[in-house]
Protein backbone atom coordinates (compact mmCIF):
# COMPACT_ATOMS: atom_id res chain seq x y z
CA UNK A 1 0.00 0.00 0.00
CA UNK A 2 1.91 3.03 -1.16
CA UNK A 3 -1.29 5.07 -1.03
CA UNK A 4 -4.76 3.60 -0.57
CA UNK A 5 -6.57 3.32 -3.86
CA UNK A 6 -10.23 3.28 -3.04
CA UNK A 7 -11.91 6.56 -2.20
CA UNK A 8 -12.95 5.65 1.32
CA UNK A 9 -9.45 4.50 2.17
CA UNK A 10 -8.06 7.66 0.63
CA UNK A 11 -10.36 9.66 2.91
CA UNK A 12 -9.14 7.73 5.97
CA UNK A 13 -5.54 8.25 4.87
CA UNK A 14 -6.15 11.98 4.56
CA UNK A 15 -8.03 12.12 7.89
CA UNK A 16 -4.99 10.62 9.61
CA UNK A 17 -3.12 13.74 8.55
CA UNK A 18 -5.31 15.69 10.99
CA UNK A 19 -3.33 14.20 13.85
CA UNK A 20 -0.58 16.72 14.38
CA UNK A 21 2.83 15.53 15.56
CA UNK A 22 3.59 16.44 19.15
CA UNK A 23 6.99 17.80 20.02
CA UNK A 24 8.94 16.74 23.11
CA UNK A 25 8.04 19.06 26.02
CA UNK A 26 11.78 19.53 26.58
CA UNK A 27 14.93 18.62 24.65
CA UNK A 28 15.93 15.01 25.18
CA UNK A 29 19.68 15.32 25.07
CA UNK A 30 20.19 16.92 28.55
CA UNK A 31 17.96 14.24 30.09
CA UNK A 32 19.77 11.42 28.32
CA UNK A 33 23.18 12.88 29.06
CA UNK A 34 22.30 13.12 32.76
CA UNK A 35 21.10 9.53 32.83
CA UNK A 36 24.24 8.28 31.13
CA UNK A 37 26.27 10.05 33.81
CA UNK A 38 24.31 8.39 36.62
CA UNK A 39 24.65 4.86 35.34
CA UNK A 40 26.39 2.13 37.31
CA UNK A 41 29.65 0.70 36.02
CA UNK A 42 29.59 -1.78 33.18
CA UNK A 43 30.27 -4.67 35.57
CA UNK A 44 27.30 -3.76 37.76
CA UNK A 45 25.11 -3.36 34.68
CA UNK A 46 26.13 -6.84 33.55
CA UNK A 47 25.14 -8.18 36.97
CA UNK A 48 21.73 -6.48 36.77
CA UNK A 49 21.24 -7.79 33.25
CA UNK A 50 22.10 -11.29 34.43
CA UNK A 51 19.57 -11.18 37.26
CA UNK A 52 16.93 -9.72 34.94
CA UNK A 53 17.56 -12.50 32.42
CA UNK A 54 17.31 -15.11 35.17
CA UNK A 55 13.96 -13.67 36.26
CA UNK A 56 12.72 -13.57 32.66
CA UNK A 57 13.74 -17.21 32.18
CA UNK A 58 11.90 -18.06 35.40
CA UNK A 59 8.81 -16.38 33.98
CA UNK A 60 8.99 -18.44 30.82
CA UNK A 61 9.58 -21.64 32.79
CA UNK A 62 6.58 -20.86 34.96
CA UNK A 63 4.51 -20.54 31.81
CA UNK A 64 5.76 -23.88 30.52
CA UNK A 65 5.13 -25.54 33.86
CA UNK A 66 1.59 -24.23 33.98
CA UNK A 67 0.93 -25.61 30.55
CA UNK A 68 0.83 -22.39 28.63
CA UNK A 69 3.66 -23.30 26.30
CA UNK A 70 2.62 -24.67 22.96
CA UNK A 71 2.73 -24.44 19.24
CA UNK A 72 -0.13 -22.11 18.43
CA UNK A 73 0.25 -18.40 17.88
CA UNK A 74 -1.93 -17.74 20.92
CA UNK A 75 0.36 -19.81 23.09
CA UNK A 76 3.40 -18.06 21.72
CA UNK A 77 1.86 -14.73 22.62
CA UNK A 78 1.07 -16.02 26.09
CA UNK A 79 4.72 -16.98 26.51
CA UNK A 80 5.65 -13.38 25.73
CA UNK A 81 3.31 -12.30 28.52
CA UNK A 82 5.04 -14.66 30.92
CA UNK A 83 8.40 -13.31 29.89
CA UNK A 84 7.05 -9.83 30.56
CA UNK A 85 5.90 -10.93 34.01
CA UNK A 86 9.40 -12.27 34.61
CA UNK A 87 10.88 -8.97 33.62
CA UNK A 88 8.44 -7.12 35.93
CA UNK A 89 9.66 -9.32 38.77
CA UNK A 90 13.20 -8.41 37.83
CA UNK A 91 12.28 -4.72 38.04
CA UNK A 92 11.17 -5.21 41.63
CA UNK A 93 7.39 -5.21 41.04
CA UNK A 94 5.89 -7.39 43.77
CA UNK A 95 3.62 -10.04 42.30
CA UNK A 96 2.21 -13.18 43.87
CA UNK A 97 1.85 -16.35 41.83
CA UNK A 98 -1.94 -15.87 41.99
CA UNK A 99 -1.62 -12.35 40.59
CA UNK A 100 0.55 -13.61 37.77
CA UNK A 101 -1.93 -16.34 36.90
CA UNK A 102 -4.82 -13.86 36.89
CA UNK A 103 -2.87 -11.47 34.69
CA UNK A 104 -2.15 -14.15 32.15
CA UNK A 105 -5.77 -15.22 32.02
CA UNK A 106 -6.88 -11.61 31.72
CA UNK A 107 -4.78 -10.99 28.67
CA UNK A 108 -6.11 -13.97 26.79
CA UNK A 109 -8.01 -12.95 23.72
CA UNK A 110 -6.09 -9.73 23.43
CA UNK A 111 -4.03 -8.97 20.42
CA UNK A 112 -2.15 -12.06 19.38
CA UNK A 113 0.70 -12.23 16.94
Amino acid sequence: MTRPKDKEMEAVWEALGASAASEPPRPLWPLIHARLGQRPTRRLRALFALSASAAAVTGVLLGILLGSAGQSAQDQWQQETWAEVGSMLADGTTLTLGDVYLASQADEGDEGP
Binding site: S22, P24, P25, L28, W29, L31
Partner: peptide, 28 residues
Protein backbone atom coordinates in the same frame (compact mmCIF):
# COMPACT_ATOMS: atom_id res chain seq x y z
CA UNK B 1 21.96 11.30 16.57
CA UNK B 2 19.58 12.08 19.46
CA UNK B 3 18.94 15.59 18.20
CA UNK B 4 18.34 14.33 14.68
CA UNK B 5 15.76 11.75 15.70
CA UNK B 6 14.22 12.97 18.96
CA UNK B 7 11.14 14.57 17.38
CA UNK B 8 10.25 11.53 15.27
CA UNK B 9 10.82 9.11 18.14
CA UNK B 10 8.85 11.23 20.59
CA UNK B 11 5.93 11.69 18.16
CA UNK B 12 5.88 7.94 17.51
CA UNK B 13 5.75 7.13 21.22
CA UNK B 14 3.17 9.80 21.92
CA UNK B 15 0.86 8.32 19.28
CA UNK B 16 1.56 4.79 20.49
CA UNK B 17 0.89 5.36 24.21
CA UNK B 18 -1.18 8.55 24.23
CA UNK B 19 0.61 10.45 26.98
CA UNK B 20 3.40 13.00 26.50
CA UNK B 21 5.06 12.24 29.85
CA UNK B 22 5.19 8.51 29.15
CA UNK B 23 6.37 9.23 25.61
CA UNK B 24 9.21 11.33 27.03
CA UNK B 25 10.31 8.45 29.28
CA UNK B 26 10.04 5.94 26.46
CA UNK B 27 12.00 8.20 24.10
CA UNK B 28 14.84 8.50 26.60
Amino acid sequence: LVERWEKAVFAFHERMVGSAEDALDLSQ
